[in-house]
């Protein structure tokens, strides 16, 4: 499988994603510069974490105008897999490829820590290697990860099973304490209606090796490869 890792000027998880996909998962990957528009050689696009354009405005608000974004829209329409991690999730929301928006954490502070997320839907291409209701231990690192959308949208996401990952306790309870940023309904990751675009705030690429404190991130990548 061939991965394209999209790089905006302020992206910084590109190298981490590249390492996880190639060195750990043994797949092919190359970088896609934000000014590029030819995506024909990729099966899956990764939009990594970072601060695409500094994100002094809303995160991703400028990145959505990068030339690559138009090409990604076409890629999605053709059914290609896209996964936006952290800043990538924010950009996908700003670009309208996913509904809702990521707001400032309710703590008003950046948070870097390990959290637990519960896999709510394992019928997506990004979660099919997971067990039902599996709890994944995974790092977060963001200042603006509080998922917000209108009541209608949230209901729709719930009803259509498009909330894929939800913050929870170690023993899979969704509680206010286990929610690190105040996301509505504890949302950590969602998919589009067609199911080929995933946005998630936690960083699976940061937990693919035991040496780094955990390897649950592999479930996401294994699902894509399955």
């Amino acid at each position: 499988m061939r991965f394209g890792i999209v790089v905006f000027p302020g992206t910084w998880s590109d190298g981490d994603c590249y390492h996880a996909v190639t060195e750990v998962m043994g797949q092919e990957a190359s970088y896609v510069w934000h000014k590029d528009t030819d995506l024909s050689s990729y099966d899956c696009l990764l939009l990594p974490g970072g601060f695409s354009y500094g994100d002094y405005l809303r995160c991703g608000a400028i990145a959505r105008f990068s030339p690559v974004m138009g090409a990604i829209e076409g890629f999605v329409k053709r059914g290609g897999l896209v996964i936006g991690i952290c800043n990538g999730f924010q950009i996908l929301c700003e670009a309208g490829l996913l509904p809702g928006v990521l707001m400032r954490n309710d703590s008003l502070q950046f948070r870097c820590s390990w959290v637990n997320v519960r896999v709510e839907n394992r019928s997506t291409p990004f979660t099919r290697a997971c067990r039902p209701g599996q709890v994944i231990r995974i790092p977060i690192a963001h200042g603006e990860g509080r998922y917000y959308a209108s009541e209608d949208t949230i209901n729709e996401l719930e009803e259509e099973g498009r909330i894929v990952l939800r913050y929870c306790t170690e023993d899979s309870q969704v509680t206010p304490e286990s929610n690190p940023n105040g996301s509505l309904n504890g949302i950590a990751g969602i998919v589009n209606r067609e199911g080929n675009v995933l946005g998630m705030m936690p960083h699976p690429e940061r937990c693919c090796e035991d040496l780094l404190g955990g390897a649950d991130g592999r479930y996401i990548f294994q699902s894509i490869l399955a």
Partner: peptide, 26 residues
Amino acid sequence: YRQYDHQVMTNTVVPPGSDAAVVRIK
């Protein structure tokens, strides 16, 4: 240190809060 990203670059083997941090060299 939870306000600092201490994991990016995926090299942090021993995170903050120990006697010393350990960062691997890929």
